[in-house]
């Protein structure tokens, strides 16, 4: 199902005052006439803008987590038609199944043919079951790896969109080697000779995210998150209380500015005012601009150089002490 911003009917608690103001504005615009009404509209528009800036400047990490999981937040397939000029979806891992929680295919980005891969969540119960709530099983990762190899064979860059709570922890997934599937993807991506650009568009959940996110450049949308564990999971392990997720979100430092500061993310991509769910097309435009820039920059490098830089980039990540003897 494609994303339609006007369908956004769910609002987060901290959005409420803004939404009410906007609703009032809408009513005035539809039914109001006359100069006084026009003045009132202008006044309310200014107030809405100020209110939005106020709310979104001071967002807590927990509020950003909620935005990243917003039910109306655009998913991979919502962005694809607005970021790319063409898209042919390809299916299956050629071993077991086609996992709908990872989508992928051939696309064109302003004249540049490439391979795009992304996690895909569902909208509504039926769609969500079909997409397994965006939690891939091994066959999803193996499909992704197959498409990366295809990209390498035809010298096409790889673009990935990350949006998952994590790899699926189920019996079948373990039987079919979830750990091996992720490990193999890390290895394939580290050695892939073509450019890889990743955008975290919603939730970057642990190994399940990293399995399609080892890249030359990693970008994060403004209100997305990326973490080693969900705040709920962290809280239930550390405090035996998943209700302390808000506290865990702070401790984990999982927002785009946090990760940019740690050097894990190379660029933060702006979202539409009020979050990507307010305007997926505008947000897609920002994504497209950044993707083109990175793909072109990386395309200028020799494959060997690209791989070595990628390895070196990850080698620098981490903070530790080393006592001198």
């Amino acid at each position: 199902m494609l994303h339609n911003p006007t369908m956004a009917t769910y609002f987060l608690p901290f959005e409420k005052p803004l939404v009410e103001l906007e609703r009032k504005l809408q009513e005035l615009k539809e039914f109001g006439t006359g100069n006084r009404v026009q003045d009132e509209i202008k006044r309310l528009e200014r107030r809405a803008l100020r209110l939005r800036e106020e709310i979104f400047r001071g967002l807590t990490r927990w509020q950003i987590v909620q935005l990243a999981r917003h039910p109306s937040r655009p998913f991979t397939l919502d962005y694809v038609p607005h970021v790319f000029d063409e898209f042919v979806e390809l299916h299956g891992d050629r071993r077991f199944a086609d996992d709908a929680s990872i989508v992928g295919g051939l696309a064109r980005l302003g004249g540049r043919p490439l391979v795009v891969i992304g996690h895909q969540k569902g909208r509504g119960t039926k769609d969500n079951i079909h997409r397994n709530f965006g939690s891939p099983r091994p066959e999803g990762y193996r499909k992704a790896k197959r498409l990366m190899r295809l990209a390498e064979r035809f010298e096409r860059p790889v673009v990935t969109f990350v949006d998952t709570q994590g790899a699926y922890p189920g019996v079948g997934a373990e039987e079919r080697g979830q750990a091996e599937a992720i490990a193999a993807n890390l290895q394939a991506m580290m050695e892939l000779r073509v450019p890889i650009v990743t955008a975290i568009i919603g939730e970057g959940g642990s190994g399940g995210a990293l399995a399609i996110a080892v890249a030359d450049r990693v970008m994060m949308l403004e209100f997305s998150i990326y973490s080693v564990i969900t705040p709920e999971g962290c809280a239930s392990i550390l405090w035996r209380d998943s209700g302390r997720a808000e506290q865990a979100a702070d401790a984990l430092r999982l927002t785009a500015p946090d990760l940019f500061g740690l050097g894990v993310v190379d660029e933060i991509v702006r979202e539409a005012p009020g979050g990507a769910q307010r305007d997926s097309v505008l947000t897609a435009g920002h994504l497209r601009e950044a993707l083109i820039r990175h793909v072109d920059e990386l395309g200028a490098l020799e494959p060997e150089e690209r791989v070595n830089r990628r390895i070196a980039k990850y080698r620098r990540l981490g903070v530790f002490h080393e006592e001198q003897r």
Partner: peptide, 8 residues
């Protein structure tokens, strides 16, 4: 946090 993830 995410730095541990990056060790993978």
């Amino acid at each position: 946090g995410v730095l541990s993830l990056m060790q993978m």
